[in-house]
Simulated assay, not measured.
Amino acid sequence: MTEALPWHATWTQAVTDFRGEEDEPGFANATVRMTVPASLDGSRVRLELSNRFGDAAVRIGRGAIGIGGQFFEVAFDGLASTEIPPGESRRTDPIALTVRHSDEIVVDLYLPEPTPYATAAGFRFSRSAPGDFVGASPFPLDGGTSEAIDESREFPAANTGAAGEPDETGWSLPAGGPFLRAIEVAGVKPRAVIVALGGSSTAMGWPQYTAALLPADAKIAVVNRGIAGNRIRLDAPPLTPSWGRSGLSRFDEDVLGTAGATHLVIAYNSNDWGLPGRIAPMAEMPSVNQLIEAYQELIDRAQAAGLRVILSTVMPLAPELLAEPEREDMRLVLNAWIRGSGHVVDFDAAVRSETDPSRLAAKYAAPDDTHPSVNGSKRLAQAMVDILQRLKLWPAEDV
């Protein structure tokens, strides 16, 4: 009997419920293309596809994985197509394929039948003109244009200015898309698989930037389980795609369910006490003690599963929240507790203004002065690399 291969995540996203989202139409006789970065080497690869929030089965007519311009068709128990029942996931059969750190992995999925946009991450992906274009290059886009595979892209792609140069003051929006939940590799033993659990600032890409900064021989995966608007304690209302299930609710699936996970970074910001009274009922406002209890529950559950935990401090609030001093007071008290609670990556100190610590530094702020820009996400990534080095996860001379 063949020994089972140990699998480790090289890329992930946290999918959420988009059934109430009207901006993204469904699919029918269309091919979806997603291009995402590998953070860990491997000699075998497989995909996890999720229909976690669908109301009906999703039929995958055909799929493929592409690396370096070459595509390899995937199978499901030896078959080219599969159905994913509502609420379930399917993994593809393993493919003997070399994946290297920082490779751009292209995933094509052909959806032959009417398929709602239900389970996704809400990030950048490409959809084709009508037809099966799995493995096609150039890829015919819906709307009559096409795109060729670009092996030179930096991930996440930055906004571009008028001259086409990267604009690192703009939004950091990583790739992702519908149904794809994880890419897993086998064949190389990693030093660590680090899962980043958090809200929008995590979802916007500092985990991917961290992985890109690490050397290939560090053998460390840094994978993203962030959801915009996500809270630690409370789930989103039904059919609210941008908030997702709470960190406590999705912990088992998104942290313990990440293949090979060894470490957890809890990297939340102010959604728990920033949303109430604005776009959530004021009755949902937590106390500081309730927030600390929720953090501690995540820590306890991770440690019980054998994971090492790193906490991030909470970055400055949205400017409009500073008009209510009690919200800023809550952030300061929580950060004081976090800084005394073990291994800490101080995201607050990394990106706050030197002249006004309650605000993001202009050079690290996106246009809303609330989220990190591309430059800000890279600054968070460097702070994360520094803490991983201090934890001696790989020899300093390798960096």
Rank of each mutant, 00 (worst) to 15 (best):
R46N: 07
D235P: 04
R90T: 14
T115G: 01
L111Q: 03
E147N: 07
W7D: 10
D329K: 12
P215K: 01
V45W: 01
D23K: 11
W394E: 08
T258S: 06
G87C: 03
V99Q: 05
S137V: 05
A318G: 09
T12Y: 05
V99A: 00
L317N: 06
A30Q: 15
A212S: 08
Q208V: 09
A212G: 02
T119I: 00
G135S: 04
V222A: 02
T92R: 06
L332G: 03
L248C: 01
L291H: 07
V58H: 03
V344K: 03
E48I: 14
R90F: 02
S201A: 13
I67F: 02
D369Q: 13
R124G: 11
P166R: 09
E48S: 13
S128A: 06
R231L: 08
M330V: 12
S146G: 00
A396F: 13
V265T: 04
G78V: 01
E293I: 13
I292M: 05
G277S: 02
A365R: 04
M1V: 15
S358H: 14
F72N: 15
V222C: 07
S249Y: 04
E48N: 13
A196M: 12
I292R: 07
R352F: 03
G143R: 02
V222W: 05
L360K: 02
V106D: 14
S353D: 15
D55C: 10
R245D: 15
S287Q: 06
V314H: 04
G176A: 11
A38W: 06
P207L: 04
P94W: 04
T119D: 00
A30C: 09
T12K: 01
G199F: 09
L275K: 11
P281H: 01
S249L: 05
I84V: 00
G187Q: 02
S246E: 02
E168D: 15
A120K: 04
L141T: 01
M315Q: 13
A175T: 14
A175V: 11
S377D: 10
E354F: 03
G68R: 05
S43E: 06
A381F: 05
S201Y: 11
V309T: 10
E293H: 09
T240F: 12
Y364H: 13
G177F: 00
P367A: 10
A9D: 11
S312Q: 10
D77T: 01
A361R: 03
G340Q: 12
